[in-house]
């Protein structure tokens, strides 16, 4: 800890207002998503607590029937939007982080194998990556999502929607991890500490995971941060298109889709606030990722 506080990295962080603000926003959002149960004034998914009379209450105004007022207004069901956004943030962040985790594990492993083993296995993995790169990742995610839903029995679809969403976004984002890790693995495996490890008879997996992996993880963290922003946006896009998170477990994208139905009848707040939240989240994750990339890249120092 002491070493971290004295590092160049931490110094650069304290000198960059952009990095500090974006990290602050991300941390605040993560905390409010995690503690949504305690922060949210109402539980938006408990039908018993909803009052249809509260529907379409504008922000900060008293409802004309019940006299109740809501910080960010309500939607057509009388759901408090502030609470719905907190819970939606939770779904969006959960899907984003899990999808990036999946993409990272998959991409790092495939990249390590491709770079270390080489030969036809390397060709196979990297050509697969090239093919996937030629399609927009949202298209891949939709394809995987559609196939997975087609394979699932109908009664499981709602329950498994989040899992399928994570799988489809995760599988569509592994390529960048694999490419970067493969490149650094090919550099590392020529170094003599790997030869020393081979001399004492360690097998390929031990060398890859214990020796090479810790030395190629630096750029992976940067890619993970940037990919997190992409994954959150991909999730929102899928949900907006109606193929992502179900209405029973709305993410920010689902909320935006619901809000879109009422935009032209004057209830602007149902769309605007979830959209602003998504914007702030994706923007700050992205800005922090960019800063991380610039700071950790020795060539840009």
């Amino acid at each position: 800890m002491q070493r971290f506080l004295q590092s160049d990295f931490f110094y650069a962080f304290t000198r960059s207002p952009l990095a500090m603000v974006s990290l602050l926003v991300v941390v605040l959002m993560v905390l409010s998503a995690v503690f949504a149960n305690f922060i949210a004034p109402t539980n938006p998914f408990d039908p018993a607590s909803l009052n249809l009379m509260n529907g379409f209450t504008p922000p900060m105004e008293a409802n004309m029937f019940t006299g109740e007022s809501f910080l960010l207004g309500t939607d057509d069901q009388g759901r408090d939007l502030f609470s719905a956004i907190l819970f939606g943030l939770r779904v969006s962040l959960f899907v984003g982080i899990m999808a990036v985790g999946l993409a990272m594990v998959l991409g790092v492993l495939l990249g390590l194998i491709a770079g270390y083993v080489g030969g036809w296995l390397d060709t196979l993995i990297m050509r697969l990556a090239d093919i996937q790169m030629t399609f927009p990742s949202i298209l891949i995610a939709m394809l995987i999502f559609g196939v997975a839903r087609g394979l699932l029995p109908p009664e499981l679809r709602e329950e498994m929607a989040i899992t399928v969403l994570i799988l489809s976004i995760g599988l569509s984002e592994w390529v960048n991890f694999a490419r970067t890790v493969r490149g650094s693995t090919m550099v590392e495996k020529e170094k003599e500490y790997v030869a020393a490890a081979r001399l004492i008879g360690l097998n390929r997996w031990q060398i890859m995971l214990r020796h090479i992996l810790p030395n190629v993880l630096g750029p992976v963290l940067v890619i993970a941060t940037i990919t997190l922003a992409l994954a959150i946006i991909a999730e929102a896009t899928l949900s907006f298109l109606g193929v992502g998170a179900p209405r029973t477990e709305p993410s920010l994208g689902t909320l935006i889709r619901i809000g879109q139905d009422f935009l032209f009848s004057g209830e602007w707040w149902i769309l605007l606030f979830p959209a602003l939240t998504l914007l702030a989240l994706a923007l700050s994750v992205n800005l922090f990722g960019d800063w991380l990339r610039d700071t950790l890249n020795p060539r840009l120092r």
Binding site: E192, Y193, A195, A196, L199, I200, H211, P214, N215
Partner: peptide
């Protein structure tokens, strides 16, 4: 293998930079 070991040319690339010296020595 145990009976044959090697000392390498580059003092910089021959030690894993992420490992403590003690761990490097204990591994064999």
């Amino acid at each position: 293998r145990r009976r044959i070991q090697m000392v390498f040319q580059s003092p910089y690339a021959s030690l894993n930079p992420r490992w403590k010296v003690g761990d490097i020595l204990c591994e064999p």
